[in-house]
């Protein structure tokens, strides 16, 4: 294999040991925070266009922690939320989850449907029409997050179709974490919270790149480890 132009896959497999999550330095963590910022910023403006409401964003929080501790960090284990999950394939595989409180999701549905009746609510508390609206919102938001991420890193990233769940935070999150735990005992978490004027805790994005993808993402950002 030539030393000057190895493909990322070859290099990861053959010559470069994957970065240990706990070894990330301040500059690299800053860069990953910026990833969260740009990704969620793009998603927020997509949502803003749909609802006509301005949406603010908090500074992203980047954490490296054992997979088992993620629910504690995210909090509100038994809070009822709507979550949209995308698996990311391509150069940098990973997981993206958008989580929003059920009450917030109801308000967004009302804003979008403008008082239109949308049928009887099902067991989840949402009607079928509301669920498909939420899936579409989640799809657009996670899609714009991923596109921003791909543009920023110049990497090829392909999303799975989105999956939607309405349930307790921990129940939904731990199902995603089980996937993460198959490859790693640690998780890198990039969280970005959204705020709307009257809804201070509008929702948040959680992006978890797989450890093997981290080297690729950091290199895409111009930070070779």
């Amino acid at each position: 294999m030539s030393t000057d132009t190895p493909t990322p896959a070859e290099e990861t497999a053959a010559t470069v040991a994957p970065i240990e999550l706990s070894d990330l330095d301040a500059l690299q963590l800053d860069a990953l925070r910026e990833v969260g910022n740009i990704g969620a910023g793009t998603a927020a403006s997509s949502l803003s266009q749909m609802t006509g409401q301005p949406i603010g964003m908090a500074v992203p929080r980047v954490s490296v922690l054992p997979v088992e501790e993620v629910p504690d960090r995210v909090g509100g284990e038994e809070q009822i939320v709507v979550a949209v999950y995308l698996r990311v394939f391509g150069d940098a595989p990973g997981h993206i989850v958008f989580i929003t409180a059920a009450e917030t999701a109801h308000e967004v549905c009302d804003q979008l449907m403008g008082g239109m009746t949308s049928g009887e609510p099902g067991p989840s508390g949402f009607s079928d029409m509301e669920l498909s609206a939420l899936q579409e919102i989640g799809n657009i938001m996670t899609g714009s997050y991923l596109r921003a991420l791909a543009d920023l890193t110049k990497l090829h990233m392909e999303p799975s179709p989105p999956a939607l769940g309405v349930d307790m935070t921990a129940a939904l999150l731990s199902a995603v974490l089980a996937e993460v735990a198959m490859h790693s005992s640690m998780a890198l978490l990039i969280e970005t919270a959204f705020e709307e004027d009257d809804m201070p805790n509008f929702g948040h994005f959680v992006y978890i790149p797989e450890p093997a993808a981290l080297t690729t993402v950091l290199r895409g950002l111009g930070l070779t480890a």
Partner: peptide, 10 residues
């Protein structure tokens, strides 16, 4: 995540 077009994962 039983709902949505990606339901069936996980």
């Amino acid at each position: 995540f039983g709902n949505g077009s990606g339901g069936g994962m996980l």
